[in-house]
Design a protein around this nucleic acid. Structure first.
Lengths: 332, 332
DNA sequence: TTGTATGCGTTATCAC
DNA sequence: GTGATAACGCATACAA
């Protein structure tokens, strides 16, 4: 069923049908009604490929995520998809993994699909900041479509970033820990990303402000996973700490398991804080104090900026910072 | 940059360029090399809209999910996307929610995007089975593209279902509970879906086989959510049970929280089993025995069948059953 | 082996 | 208001 069939049946030209379909006002009500009736009867829908060819857009945006099954990522995708859908856009989803070569390949693939914009979720896409060429492929992509980063910062034309104020929130949290008499605060992370660096910064600031020297041995890098953390801590017998800040909830839960195994009370002997305020933080025991990075706010603002950009807006902030909040629970 | 530009620069016709791009062997190596070089230099990629218009496909499949942020769903999407990507297909993702009207609308929208196939994830799409017209929109969609259901069963032409053997696994699990001297086993669910019904069936079978009468008061419907379950159980003071089977891990964790509040030991006083073997099941305390419905197997088999179908296969099973396994942990 | 010509289903620019 | 017609960029049947 094509526009020609409709035109035939309605006794008009395809131009008129097109006008009706696209809601042009330059068509006589009587004609419009007639065409609409035929369309209804025939169950006609315009062919999106032909539309795409003519208009050079199919109203889709690409969403790139390192790992879709991750709680944090999937929340973001859910939020983004929802907001985009409301604006009449579809999303084509792609999971790149963490390897730089795959990231590049996936971006290329998405671009070849003629997406209207690209959203990259997760600070992993911002790289570690040590090697600027690491993010060149993003700048390259931005030459074709606007690129929006969620929770990562990359400088460049046509690149727009939205992040939460991790540094500040961690700063506050660690400060509060120190004030409540914690002396040795473990910093636990599974990443060297921009976000992790910001958190480390807040951690160091709080220490320094309280006249505590940064102790390298209290900064631990562990592969993500509850049990990984648990075993790693058990293995480090000489490591003593009375509080822990972890850059992810699951890392923090690993610490809870460790505390239980060592018969340490939480929060009395060890107080524990996680990040992302995920569903995990209320599944564990005790429930976990967690830094909420306002993912929904970030996503909503991203889509808002995206739509603005696509509709010709020009005053879009290249970096949006959303304040984090702290969700207090029993682990502190 | 179009195929015409490439043809000009390489001094050949567009047909030849097209042949090179599509890897036809009917082109002289010398010519091929020349064209390839120009393509490389120009960074040319075929316009997918034009391709789509001619071939009537853009190699995309639609994935419909009620809630993307759900742990179970996002794992499925991750798995599906991965497998599809390996086959050279992209996915356009859509979150429908649980309302039937929205489901219908989302299916229509996906179909209008000219997807090559539709995958629906979650037993919610199978309806409760009480009203067959509830799933008519799926049969309608199947007239346009093959439809694949994950974890739900709908009968119809061009509809293919993959489910795990929930009934059997629950049967085994409940039987084991009874054998270990549990008398009053609570059945906790947040759904009336096909999957939930299968689980109930297994539950009843095990009871009946062991000569225990089904007690309506031990079958509880609660809205999903750890705290919802927790409060609901606390509110039901007269409800006594010494074991619980929950159709979802988070429901089961609600029971764990309830046990802790009531100072009941798990598994001694109450043994608890969940479903989906999600990350939650190792986050809680004690860690949760959970029925693993082999989501990855289901997804992989679905994509396999899908590819088969798209490549002209004709002997695709309309219903695939994957055996569940039981992941034993400390809660039983 | 290569080139020419046509169709795919729209939208948009003209005339009328 | 409405209709004819030219893009849009590709694949492919057919001709050479």
């Amino acid at each position: 069923m094509t526009i020609y069939d409709i035109a035939d049946r309605a006794g008009v030209s395809i131009a008129t049908v097109s006008r009706v379909v696209n809601g042009s006002d330059k068509v006589r009500p009587k004609t419009k009604e007639k065409v609409l009736k035929v369309i209804e009867e025939a169950g006609y829908t315009p062919n999106v490929f032909a539309q795409g060819l003519g208009l050079n857009t199919m109203h889709t945006v690409g969403i790139l995520v390192p790992d879709i099954s991750d709680l944090y990522m999937s929340s973001a995708v859910s939020c983004l998809e929802d907001a985009l859908h409301l604006c009449g856009y579809d999303c084509i989803l792609s999971g790149s993994g963490f390897d730089i070569r795959n990231k590049r390949a996936h971006v290329q693939l998405l671009l070849s699909k003629k997406i209207d914009a690209l959203i990259m979720v997760g600070s992993t896409y911002a790289g570690a900041g040590t090697d600027p060429t690491e993010t060149d492929y993003i700048r390259e992509a931005a030459k074709q479509v606007p690129v929006f980063l969620i929770n990562g910062v990359v400088e460049g034309d046509n690149i727009y970033c939205a992040v939460c104020d991790d540094c500040k929130a961690v700063h506050q949290m660690v400060d509060a820990m120190i004030k409540s008499d914690k002396k040795r605060i473990l910093f636990l992370t599974d990443s060297h990303s921009y976000s992790a660096q910001q958190k480390m910064l807040g951690y160091k600031q709080a220490l320094s402000e309280n006249g505590i020297a940064f102790d390298e041995s209290l900064s631990l890098y562990v592969r993500n996973g509850i049990h990984e953390v648990y075993y790693q801590l058990l293995a480090q017998d000489d490591l003593h700490f009375d509080a822990c800040f972890a850059t992810d909830d699951s890392l923090a839960i690993g610490v809870l398991k460790y505390a239980k195994a060592k018969k340490l009370r939480v929060p009395e002997d060890i107080s524990v804080v996680g990040c992302n305020n995920s569903y995990l933080s209320i599944a564990c025991e005790p429930e976990l104090t967690s830094i909420d990075n306002r993912l929904e706010d970030i996503c909503r603002s991203t889509v808002e900026h995206l739509m603005n950009k696509l509709h010709g807006g020009n005053d879009i902030p290249s970096k949006t910072i959303v304040p984090s909040t702290i969700q207090l629970r029993a682990s502190t």
